[in-house]
Structure formats: structure tokens, C-alpha cells
Amino acid sequence: MSEAKTVIVVIEDDPQIRRFLRTGLESHGFQIQEAETGGQGLAEAANRKPDLVILDLGLPDIDGVEVVRKIREWSALPVIVLSARATETDKVAALDAGADDYLTKPFGMSELLARIRVALRHAQGLAQDKGGVFAVANLKVDLAHRRIQVDGAEVHLTPIEYRLLAVLVKHAGRVLTHRQLLKEVWGPGYVERSHYLRVHMAGLRHKLEADPARPRFLLTEAGVGYRLSAE
């Protein structure tokens, strides 16, 4: 029985990047469909029913963020956006519009594969193992029983901190923008008060990380948001 290969649609106008993506990803067992423009990409995504979309934000015909929105209108399939470095705003916009993660060009194959893995796991609902326990390095989070352990020792979190951690765990491995976190943890009225988020993240780091100044898993993506590393 042949395993169904995971289908990835790559929407990227630069042929060299497409080539290297195809070569690298195919060697890891993915099946690649290429699209040169946003319009083409949307058509492919609609027809081929892929498992993942890799989307370049700098497309000639449609704005990348617009493509994300369009996809999100009819599907929750994971989207990873690629962006040139200019500013953070386009990445944040894409993430807020529904993209799952991002990569800044130039990037290496291993980073891309890591992101793809995380995105697929979330899509397939395999983020946590059975029992709803999430573990990374010396951290263990049991959402069902609301128990957090660092190096085996229990750690007490305030309600807000817990909720924050819970959101991060739910999206473990993926980046979450400030806006998304504020909305989920505090509510839509708080989306402009990023200092709340930062203070509580600092609190989490102090409680959970061995060296809060050198975080192992509570990673900061400057200008974008935070990521709970899953590995």
C-alpha cells in the first residue's frame, strides 16, 4: 500500500527558489505543486486539496496577505508565508489574517522542514499526545489537570499566566502574534495593550525557564510575537 504523500502547494514567483524548494522537499518525501502567481496558487489550492501551502508574500499579481485571507475563507489548511526581510508588518499582517507561520528569506532547509512539521502536526490534531500532555525540554504541561512541572517540580501560575501558557501550548511550535495572544488571553478590547503581554511573558519565563535571559522554549520573535518551541 503506498503511503499517500503529503501534498504541498508552493506559490512563489522566483524560479530559483521554487527549484530549491522542490528539490529539498521532494527529497523528504513531499509532493510538490508549483504556482507562479497568486491566482494560479489559489486555483491549485482549490483543485489539488493540498495538505499545506507555502506562500511567498511578494507576489506580482495579488498581495500575499490577500491570498491568505482568500484561502481562509473556505479552508483551515496550514499556510506558511515566506517574506523578504524589509519590515515585520507584512509578516504580522499575514499571521493575523490566518497564516500559521512564517520564514524570513534567506532560510535554510532545516528551518523550513521544522515549520512544516509543526504546521502539519497541528493540522492533524497531533500537537499534544494523548491525555493532553505537552512536553518540551524540562517542561511538562498537563492541560487536562492544569498541572505544570519544571524538572518534575510543580510550578504555580496565576490564572492569566496559565491561560497564556495554555494558548501557547495549543499552538506549540507555531508563532503567535501579539495581537492574537492579547485577543485570546485578555479579549478583543486589549489588543493594543502589548505591555500586559510582555510583563506576563516575562513572568512565565522567570517561572519556567532555567535562565530567563536565555530562554530555551519561550522564544521571542521581535516585532512579531512569541513561539513556544516544541523541540
Binding site: 519565563r205 530562554p215 521571542t220
Partner: peptide, 10 residues
């Protein structure tokens, strides 16, 4: 408003 620690961590 950012804690310095966060920047260093980044």
C-alpha cells in the same frame, strides 16, 4: 514597553 530581558533573550 519591553522588558530588556526579552530583547537579550531574542
Amino acid at each position: 514597553w519591553v522588558p530588556l530581558e526579552e530583547i537579550v533573550g531574542g
